[in-house]
Design a protein around this nucleic acid. Sequence first.
DNA 1: CCTGTACATTCCTTGACCGGAATATAACCA
DNA 2: TGGTTATATTCCGGTCAAGGAATGTACAGG
Lengths: 113, 113
Amino acid sequence: MPDGSLWTALADPHRRNIIALLLERPRPVGEIVEACGLSQPSTSKHLKVLREAGLVRVHQQAQRRVYALDSAPIAELDAWLAPYRQLWNERLDALGRRLDATSDATDSDTPKD
Amino acid sequence: MPDGSLWTALADPHRRNIIALLLERPRPVGEIVEACGLSQPSTSKHLKVLREAGLVRVHQQAQRRVYALDSAPIAELDAWLAPYRQLWNERLDALGRRLDATSDATDSDTPKD
DNA sequence: CCTGTACATTCCTTGACCGGAATATAACCA
DNA sequence: TGGTTATATTCCGGTCAAGGAATGTACAGG
């Protein structure tokens, strides 16, 4: 169940780095270890956090464990973001109108914003 | 400059709560304190984190300090999310094709996904 | 069966963060 | 200027996450 673990998982730069690596293509742990410059245990622990947050999935292949992104939580983030996206659209919209209004009006009702 | 402070700021549930409150409308600190159920100092500290992450702005009004959302970092988040959004669109697309294919094909190559 | 490879897990120490209490600061008002 | 309200900052104890070292586990090959 998606509690706050998604945000917690993404709060760490190394984990965001791993996520970015997996965006290019799925990778076994060894590759991630090299790319991150972290120790193998530390990397495995980060992978565990990402796994428990539902951000990645493992697919065993011989002795390798190949990690890949799972897109579901990303969608969740996007859903969280939606209301704020509206806000910023309104802002841009308002800015546009203001710029437009300055063409034929004196700044009598816009104190100092 | 936006370092990782944005993610760190949003990692805390209380701070996300504050953000949600400010989405409705700008509010003075006192209101936020009541709504959060946290102590005033603790709330002020969270507000400081949000401020330093660029997520909120203060507008002094008499003795009150009215906090409001700043939309810029939200846009930043959205930009970060963009590449992953692509990934998940591809997934949905693939799913759609698979559902479509099941209409005239036996499930011979879809083991247990 | 034994060895090596590829990961995961545990133990431990350190540093960061959280929350509350007390205190400091700033703005308004008489 | 002194007092009150509104907010910020500091200090402090407790908790939690991160990283390294050591160890455990699973799978392949000889």
